[in-house]
């Protein structure tokens, strides 16, 4: 079968239209632009963080322990004299890695399961639905605790646990989006054009459900980071002395009642900013995809 490329001008025109739409949404809501910039900064820090920080995040120096923020130590130092600024920056990579791999896992598995159960219905749908319901029958953070406790206290298991508790969202979104389009005229038309079920799902339905899925991804990333940090806050997953936002807040918590606020504030603020960024991004993506559905 001959492979036919799209004429170039067509790609350009659709790209141009998309760009125009993007500019419109951004100009309507500058917060979205801010979120994109913030996201860029975090990604930059995740990649290059270890090379740009002023201090070794693990090197302790008891002579300068518990110093408040100063020109030398922007975010102060902790009880072992480690530079909080360097630790906060370096932690970006670990936190983002956990969140991204967990979300990627649940996105891939969830969208496949959701598509199949939405498209075929019947027993596939019942089995997938029942499994997802079982996950959702737990308070999700509690389930994650149980999984990490059972599988062992490691970073990989944090990723698996976060992936499992995120799975229902993707499965449900994919299932719902496929389900509403399953009866659509263009799906029947694609069948008439000789597409097999697999082709139909991959090339006709999947691209159409991708936008709502991407919104879900963005909103979920923030939640995944919160979960991972929450787990390490109660002592699961990441072990000290690795710099990680949740664990740093937990370590700083003991000093807050004696007034050393900077130990917990800065990692906590970084965590908050990251989650805030993903949430704004999710809203922005939603606007990009469908300006009518703004909430």
């Amino acid at each position: 079968m001959a492979v036919i490329e799209q004429p170039d001008d067509k790609i350009e025109s659709s790209l141009a239209a998309w760009w125009r739409h993007f500019r419109y949404v951004v100009s309507e809501n500058p917060v979205t632009l801010f979120a994109f910039c913030l996201f860029g900064m975090f990604v930059f820090l995740a990649f290059f963080g270890p090379w740009i920080v002023p201090f070794d995040p693990l090197a302790s120096d008891t002579s300068s322990a518990l110093q408040p923020p100063s020109w030398k130590h922007w975010f102060g130092t902790d009880n072992l004299g480690r530079d909080v600024f360097s630790r906060v920056i370096v932690a970006t990579r670990l936190d983002f890695m956990i969140a991204f791999s967990a979300v990627a896992l649940s996105f891939v598995i969830g969208s496949v399961l959701g598509c199949l159960s939405g498209y075929y219905g019947g027993w596939t749908d019942r089995i997938v639905g029942r499994s997802v319901d079982t996950i959702m029958a737990f308070p999700l953070f509690v389930l994650a605790m149980g999984i990490v406790a059972a599988l062992g206290n490691t970073v990989e298991n944090i990723v698996y646990a976060t992936a499992i508790i995120n799975l229902p969202f993707y499965t449900r979104v994919a299932r719902a989006e496929v389900n509403i389009r399953r009866q659509a005229g263009f799906v029947d038309a694609a069948k008439l054009a000789g597409n097999s079920d697999a082709r139909l799902l991959t090339f006709h339905l999947y691209p159409n459900i991708l936008p709502p899925m991407m919104v879900q991804v963005s909103l979920n990333l923030g939640w995944a980071i919160l979960n991972a940090a929450g787990l390490s806050f109660i002592g699961l997953g990441v072990r000290p002395p690795s710099p990680e936002w949740g664990i740093m807040v937990a370590e700083g918590a003991t000093f807050i009642v004696s007034g050393q606020w900077w130990l917990a504030l800065f990692p906590g603020a970084a965590l908050m900013l990251a989650v805030f960024c993903f949430n704004l991004l999710g809203d922005g993506l939603r606007d990009l995809i469908d300006p009518q559905r703004r909430t």
Binding site: G222, L226, A229, G230, F233, G246, V249, A250, G252, A253, I256, A264, G268, L271, M272, L273, V275, F276, N279
Partner: peptide, 9 residues
């Protein structure tokens, strides 16, 4: 966006 343990602290 607020981690609940952070707000509490």
């Amino acid at each position: 966006s607020l981690p609940v343990f952070f707000t509490g602290l």
